[in-house]
Amino acid sequence: MKLSTGLAKFLITIGVLFSALISALSHGSDEVQALDWSDLMPAGFSDEALFADYDVSAFEDGDPEGQRRLEEFQEILQSAPVIESLDGQLISLPGFALPLEGDYEATSLFLLVPYFGACIHVPPPPSNQIVLVRADPGVKIETLFAPVKVSGRIRIETTDTGIAHAGYTLDLTNIETIEDF
């Protein structure tokens, strides 16, 4: 069976469009989405609401019930729900960098957190408010006190860094120091 030139071109065009659609769906969009920290939390989830049932002043040091409640609370923080539809997307997100690997010249692994001092204080933010950033090759973090904006492909991947549990990872493509956010 011989196809006409017009029909052959049409079928090739449909094939190319279909292939591009499949590629976009499997690899995420190539358009960078500017996100805010609230975009990393499912609707109805509130990190502030997590604290509502926990009055630490009701317990004394060494109180077994207080210890049990603390462990329960930490488990809730470490398993906070994420937004599955973000997996594989190119995003940008402002925050503060907390280096985990590297030195003053190059940091290859760091946490991005929504406010200065997060993860240094106990307890850390919920895991859906912590992003583990992989920077290959390493990048220079100018100062820990200034906010940065990172860009890259985000993944749904829970990681225990020893400091905190991150609900997301990001393969860094760009980092810049910003004035405020």
Rank of each mutant, 00 (worst) to 15 (best):
E105L: 13
I76V: 13
L172Q: 05
D136M: 13
I141P: 00
Q33S: 14
Y54I: 13
V150E: 04
S38P: 00
L70H: 07
V56F: 15
F18S: 14
A80V: 02
I154P: 01
L3K: 12
R68C: 00
V32E: 09
P124L: 12
L100R: 10
G88F: 06
P123E: 08
L35M: 09
I154D: 00
E179H: 10
V56L: 14
K140D: 01
G28P: 01
G167Q: 03
F51R: 11
I156N: 13
W37G: 06
R155A: 14
L35N: 05
S92E: 12
S92W: 02
P124G: 04
N174S: 13
A164S: 06
I156L: 12
F51A: 15
A164K: 05
T159Y: 06
A164D: 02
P125N: 04
T159A: 10
I22T: 13
T173H: 09
V32N: 06
G44K: 02
D53L: 08
M41T: 08
A20S: 11
E71T: 10
L100V: 06
F181K: 09
I154Q: 05
V16K: 07
A52R: 10
A146S: 15
R68H: 09
G152E: 00
A118Q: 03
D30S: 15
E65R: 11
D103T: 14
S79R: 10
G95K: 03
Y168E: 01
I22N: 09
D55F: 05
F96Y: 15
Q89G: 05
F59Y: 15
N128D: 07
P64K: 14
Q67D: 10
G66K: 02
T169P: 00
D87E: 02
L21C: 13
Y54G: 00
G138R: 09
A146R: 05
H121G: 06
N174V: 08
S127Q: 07
V131A: 01
E84T: 13
D47P: 11
A80S: 11
L109I: 03
C119V: 13
V148N: 05
I156T: 09
I178P: 02
L50A: 03
L17A: 15
F10P: 00
G167L: 02
F145Q: 10
H121T: 15
A20E: 04
F145L: 12
G102Y: 09
L21I: 08
F51E: 10
P123L: 12
L25Y: 13
F110L: 10
S151E: 14
L7R: 15
A49Y: 02
T143E: 04
L11I: 14
P147T: 01
G6S: 12
A34T: 13
F73K: 07
L3P: 11
T5S: 09
P94Y: 05
E72Q: 15
I120G: 07
F59G: 06
Y54F: 15
S79K: 12
P64L: 11
D171I: 12
A49P: 02
